[in-house]
Simulated assay, not measured.
Amino acid sequence: MRGLFVLPSHLLRLALCAALVLVASCGRTGTGERDGASPPGAPTGVTATAGTATSVHVMWNTTARADVYEVYRGTTKVRDVPGSQHMVDVTGLRPSTPYVFTVRARDAEGRPGPRGRQVRARTPAAVADDHSAPTRPSAPHGRAVGDRAVQLSWSASTDDRGVASYDIHQGNAKIHSVNGSQTAAVVTGLRPATAYSFTVRARDAAGNVSPAAPAVRVTTPGTEDGRATAPTGFRARGHRADGAYYVDLSWVPPRVDGEITEYEIHLDGRPATSLVFGGDAPRDRATYGFYVGRHAGVSHRVRVRAMLPDGTWGGFSTERTVTTGQGR
């Protein structure tokens, strides 16, 4: 069963508390966090790739309200990563050893969210006295996959002891790593209508790094008007129960690379509440209902937008108007 955590604003705090009763009666749980805010959600898109015989590269999608990310090896916390970053190289590991990693976000008040899924990586065997770097990756190619992702590919490097991983750089910053057996990767969290430059380097188990492959330049399509990231199929209807009026919403989540777990609802032009879905977030159609008052004939404008996997707000849905006492 999906859990739904509600973040009411100070204007609708009492009204939305009443709405929690309605949501729970429809088969979903609802809990209100103190101070009108919930902890961050579980990081999504977590991956772990062995970079050398003694290091693993762990990365994840940006999480809303994250001030710090806690990275765990098994049950041991090994790193705190600033909320502005979403990757880390965990070093000091043993060669030829399997490891399990998890990541969780902590907000500015110190409240931790749930951990993301477990990911596994095995470090390769140690290689003594290896000072020879792999050859440069060749024939790099890139293409946009939608307006927020790029797919990169290249021809494999060679190394006298074997390639352990490939590092992907955006400009001068390392942004991703994949296993040495892979010659392709998808870079996500990009912006529409933006020019990017990527390079790839090969790394062996001893940490020797190849020269960079020729830069791949890709411009993502689309515009920044928000249409590509707005929820679609937005519907709003009112109903009456126990002498009060409620608005029931439903929408189709925007099609982006990664999972969307948080939405913000605007009522009459102002933010009214934020929704954080726990467990499996809806992919086909999301629904939510909330209390708006006890008087008939009152019209409300409502719209919704999604927190994207890169930590930014997407575009708004079409705005709908609902009048209490009309409809079912």
Rank of each mutant, 00 (worst) to 15 (best):
V103R: 03
V103E: 12
R104I: 07
R106D: 12
D107F: 08
D107I: 11
D107C: 14
A108W: 07
E109F: 12
E109M: 14
R111E: 11
R111S: 07
P112W: 10
R115E: 13
G116L: 08
R117V: 14
V119H: 10
R120D: 01
R120E: 13
A121M: 06
R122F: 11
T123S: 10
V127P: 02
V127H: 07
V127R: 11
A128T: 15
A128M: 11
D129G: 12
D129Y: 15
H131L: 13
S132D: 14
S132T: 15
S132E: 14
A133I: 04
A133Q: 05
P134Y: 07
P134V: 10
P134I: 08
T135A: 12
R136I: 14
R136D: 06
A139S: 15
P140I: 11
G142I: 06
R143C: 02
A144G: 13
A144T: 05
G146R: 05
R148A: 10
V150A: 07
Q151C: 01
Q151R: 13
L152T: 02
L152K: 00
S153V: 00
S153E: 05
W154R: 04
A156E: 12
S157C: 13
T158Q: 07
T158V: 10
D159A: 03
D160A: 08
D160E: 03
R161M: 01
R161S: 03
G162S: 03
A164Y: 00
S165Q: 06
Y166R: 09
Y166N: 13
Y166F: 14
D167N: 06
D167I: 01
D167F: 06
I168N: 02
H169K: 07
Q170F: 07
G171N: 03
G171S: 05
N172C: 03
K174S: 03
S177V: 04
V178P: 05
V178R: 12
N179F: 08
N179T: 14
G180K: 04
S181D: 15
Q182E: 15
A184D: 08
A185I: 10
A185E: 14
A185P: 06
V186Y: 00
V187I: 15
G189S: 10
R191S: 09
R191V: 06
R191G: 05
P192D: 15
S197I: 02
S197Y: 00
F198T: 01
T199C: 05
V200R: 01
R201C: 05
A202P: 06
A202R: 10
A202I: 08
A202Y: 07
A205T: 13
